[in-house]
Design a protein around this nucleic acid. Structure first.
Lengths: 222, 222
DNA sequence: TGTGCTTAGTGTTCATTGTACACTTAGTAT
DNA sequence: ATACTAAGTGTACAATGAACACTAAGCACA
């Protein structure tokens, strides 16, 4: 258990977050412009070193709150990346998380002010620092996979929404068109949705019933 | 990026392995009796500190080889555990892996000799050191889940086998009986199996055709 | 006020997949 | 030759998934 043996080492331990939202029909991820070496000036995933007495989940929550000012959103541990050369200066192992935030919950004016933060379209990413491109690809893959067999997409929806909005969210994530009638049938069959009684009368057309989730809990279909 | 800041710390980083095999119709996991404090004398999952210039996967492979003398078996990263108090003496973050080994590939005489190693029945586990019980439960859950929607069970089979043996393996993992005719239909429909032409004529009954996997690659059904 | 535009909302048919179920075959043992 | 054991095989029915088009309700504008 002696961590000072010459062959052993105590790598730095960080958490990195792939924080997703959807806006303007595009899947976006939060990027941070690095203020320090290495990769100064390049875009990267938000992250930070593990702090004393803080669990991994807590560290991820802390970073999330620092960068987005939101809490209580869907977050899960993704994978741990530890290639010896992933940081050019020192050995750093990073535990990657991914999080989902409904666009409406983001304080847009505040985050727009911070020039070093950017919600980047995942289909038009800049060059990223470290191995963050690989981490992000892994996160996107997981998000897309889970969207097709769970209700993880719930994490991106506002409190109340039209079924057509929910369908659009699925379509954006899985990159495919869905049949309106089948989609509604399936969603209502899960009994995870409930009518609010309210109607959304915006637009020059028939108003839509607003729905909400009975409780925000991730369920698995099949 | 300064890891010496007072609030930061560089925790120890280990890998721990849940190494499974099946023998006598029971799912077994490899345990190691701890020779040192903390938890001296208690059973634990095999593991070890990360070594300089070694990737996480390599570290896991190293531990696997040290304890079982096998290589080239199915292994995947499971989850990373980092509760601040999971090791009573120092902060240690551990990246858990799980591995599957066909019983026949284990050099039984050699491993039996080592009194500090034990293949424990997962339904009759001793008290485990650290949070290894939680890690193991997580691993078992993942194994059972994956068995039902992938061909991960392949990792537990010998080179050649009867279909009835493959069915038994599934039944042991998922803890349920399967229909013989439906099972065979489904397995052959994947086209991942091929007849060897050989027959296994052991036992006082009709000999069975021996099958093998076309290539050991994990596929997903559904 | 009525005509056109837009999105909301709704069922049925058909194809595919999954599930339940029982008898014959080929060998060994006695 | 008879009994025992596991191997091997097909069909009918149920459940699920996929394709598909029209009516309803509101707004805008002439």
């Amino acid at each position: 258990m002696n961590t000072k043996h010459k062959d052993y080492e105590t790598p730095g331990v960080t958490v990195d977050l792939a924080i997703f939202t959807v806006n303007s029909a595009k899947l976006k991820v939060l990027l941070v412009k690095r203020a320090e070496e290495p990769f100064r000036g390049q875009w990267s995933l938000p992250g930070g070193f593990l702090i004393h007495d803080e669990s991994l989940d807590n560290a991820a929550q802390r970073v999330l709150k620092e960068k987005t000012a939101v809490q209580n959103v869907y977050m899960e541990q993704l994978y741990t990346f530890g290639h010896p050369k992933r940081d050019p200066r020192a050995r750093v192992v990073t535990i990657a998380y991914f999080a989902l935030i409904p666009w409406k919950r983001l304080a847009q004016p505040a985050s727009e002010k911070i020039v070093d933060l950017s919600w980047a379209d995942v289909d038009a990413l800049p060059k990223l620092a470290f191995d963050h491109k690989a981490i992000l690809n892994y996160a996107i893959q997981r998000l897309r996979a889970k969207a097709s067999y769970s209700n993880i997409v719930y994490g991106l929806m506002p409190k109340q929404f039209r079924l057509s909005e929910l369908q659009s969210m699925y379509e954006i994530i899985i990159h495919d068109k869905l049949d309106k009638r089948n989609f509604r049938k399936q969603m209502l069959a899960t009994h995870l949705l409930e009518e609010t009684g309210k109607k959304d009368a915006t637009g020059a057309h028939r108003p839509a019933m607003l729905y909400q989730f009975k409780k925000m809990k991730i369920a698995f279909f099949n």
